[in-house]
Design a protein around this nucleic acid. Structure first.
Lengths: 242, 242
DNA sequence: CGGATTTTTGATAGCAATCAACAGCGGTGG
DNA sequence: CCACCGCTGTTGATTGCTATCAAAAATCCG
C-alpha cells in the first residue's frame, strides 16, 4: 500500500560541541526524551541519530517486521495500527511531536507506524539506542515514565472500545483532542472520518451519524468538515464518561 | 462492593543477610522483577517490602484513589479493571504470579486491582520503591522491559476489542490462555463467564453462545464448566486471528 | 436433598454494519 | 467560466450481530 520512507538528510553529529549543532535548533529539544540528558550525553546520542522525513501516508515501521529504528517525532503526526488476519484495521495509538516512537529492547515491531501528515523525525538505530539507554540510566528512566503513561492511556482506551456506545466513543475522542489542543471552543480535526473510525472501532457511517446526533442535540457544531465547535463542554464530557 | 485488603504478616527484613530470609523461600525469586538485583540490592529492597494476602474478591488498588502500594504477585491472580460513569466494567489486564503490579512514578491508580483468587503479594510503599528504582538503574531497566511488553499486549487487545466478532474474541482468549498454560490439549479456565465477558467486552450470554458455537463446530469441547479441550488448534487459531 | 448461584438456551429489541444513493468540495481541462 | 470527475462525507434502507429480558438447566455447597 505504502512505500518505504526515504531518508531526508545526511547523518548528523561529528565534533563534540557543547551542544550539538543538530540539536540546537531542534523543535522539541525541551520536551522530547533527550531533554533529560546533559550536554555530553546529548552529544553522544546525537552522533547516533539522523533526520528522516515522511510524506503523509508513508510507513516508518511495519507490523511484524524487524523494528530497526526508534526515534523522536519532531513535527507531524503518525498512527500506530494493527490489522486482523482479514485486513480490518485498528489504530492503537497516535504519536505527536516530542513523543517517542518505536520499540526498544524488542526484535519485531508489534504494530505499523504510518505518517498521517508530513512528518519529520530524529531516528536512531535500535541496537545502538538500546546500548545507549543501558549506559545512560537517565534515558531509561525517562523512557519508563513515558511508557507507563502510554500504558495507562492504552488501557483507558480499552474501556472505550470494550464498553462504550458509538456516541460515547465519538464524544470521548472530541474531548481528548480538545484537551490536548486546548485552543478555544473550536478544535481542528486532524483526522478523516475513516481515521476516526479506525481509532474508535467504528465505521465511517457510524462516526458521521454520531457527529450528526451530537450536532442536532446542540452539543457541538460543525462549522467546516475538519473543525468542531464545542457548545456545551459539560454535556459532551458527561456523554464521553458513559 | 469489596472491602480493603487486610495485611497478612508483619514487615520482613532486618539484618543484612547475604540473601534475605524473606526472599530465600520466595516462590517467584527467579522470575519476579527483583531477580535482576544482586544480594545487596535484594537485601535493601526486602527491607522495604512486606507480605500481603488477599482473599478472592478483595481489592488492592482502587481506580482514581492514591496508589500507595506497588509490588510483586507471589501466587494467585488479579484483574485490573476500569468502570464507565454508569458502572459498566472493562478488565484491562490480568496479573499473574511473578508479574509486577501497581503504578510507580504516578500519584493515582489508573484502575482497580482486585484478586480473582486468593492471592499473596510482596508489596512496597510506592514512594520508597520509586526512590529505590531511581537509585538502582537495573530495576528501572527491568521495569521498563516489562512495561513495554505490557503495552504491546494492551495494544494487541485493542484490536480484539475494536474489530473482532464475539466468536473471534472468545477464540482469542482461549488461545491466549492455552499458550500461557501450555499443559496439554485441555486447559483449566481460571475465569467465570462474567469475567470472560469483562475481559472481552461482551455479555455472559454472548460468551456462552460463542463457546457453544465453537463446541458445536467440533473445534473445542467442554468436558466441565471450567475446562476446555482444544480439538482443532489450527482452526481455533484461524478464528482468533480474524 | 434443597436452595443459591452460575450457565445455557430462547425470544426479542436495539444498535451498528452493510449496502446504496446522494451531496459537497476541489481540481482539471475544455 | 463552467462542466466534469474523483474523493470525502452524509443520509437512507436494510441486515445482522449482540444486548437485553426471561426462563430453564446445570452446578455447587451445605
Amino acid at each position: 500500500m505504502y512505500r518505504d520512507a526515504h531518508v531526508g538528510e545526511a547523518p548528523v553529529g561529528g565534533a563534540a560541541f557543547a551542544l550539538p549543532a543538530s540539536c540546537a535548533g531542534c523543535p522539541v529539544r525541551s520536551s522530547a526524551i533527550c531533554c533529560v540528558l546533559d550536554d555530553s550525553g546529548l552529544t553522544a546520542l546525537s552522533r547516533l541519530g539522523r533526520r528522516v522525513t515522511l510524506a503523509a501516508g508513508e510507513t516508518l515501521l511495519w507490523e511484524g517486521e524487524e523494528a530497526v529504528t526508534v526515534g523522536n517525532v519532531l513535527s507531524g503526526m503518525l498512527k500506530l495500527s494493527t490489522l486482523t488476519g482479514d485486513g480490518r484495521e485498528q489504530i492503537v495509538g497516535i504519536v505527536h511531536p516530542s513523543d517517542f516512537i518505536g520499540r526498544p529492547f524488542g526484535k519485531d515491531s508489534p504494530h505499523s507506524a504510518t505518517a498521517l501528515t508530513d512528518t519529520t523525525l530524529c531516528v536512531f538505530g535500535r541496537a545502538a539506542f538500546d546500548r545507549f539507554a543501558r549506559e545512560h540510566a537517565v534515558i531509561g528512566q525517562a523512557l519508563l515514565e513515558r511508557t507507563l503513561t502510554e500504558l495507562d492511556r492504552a488501557r483507558h482506551w480499552m474501556l472505550l472500545l470494550g464498553r462504550k456506545s458509538a456516541c460515547e466513543r465519538v464524544a470521548s475522542l472530541i474531548v481528548e483532542i480538545a484537551d490536548r489542543a486546548d485552543d478555544g471552543p473550536a478544535i481542528d480535526l486532524p483526522l478523516s472520518r475513516q481515521q476516526m473510525g479506525d481509532i474508535l472501532g467504528l465505521t465511517i457511517e457510524t462516526v458521521s451519524r454520531s457527529l450528526t446526533r451530537l450536532k442536532r442535540a446542540g452539543i457541538i457544531a460543525l462549522p467546516s468538515l475538519r473543525r468542531i465547535a464545542i457548545n456545551r463542554p459539560g454535556e459532551l464530557r458527561a456523554i464521553a464518561e458513559g
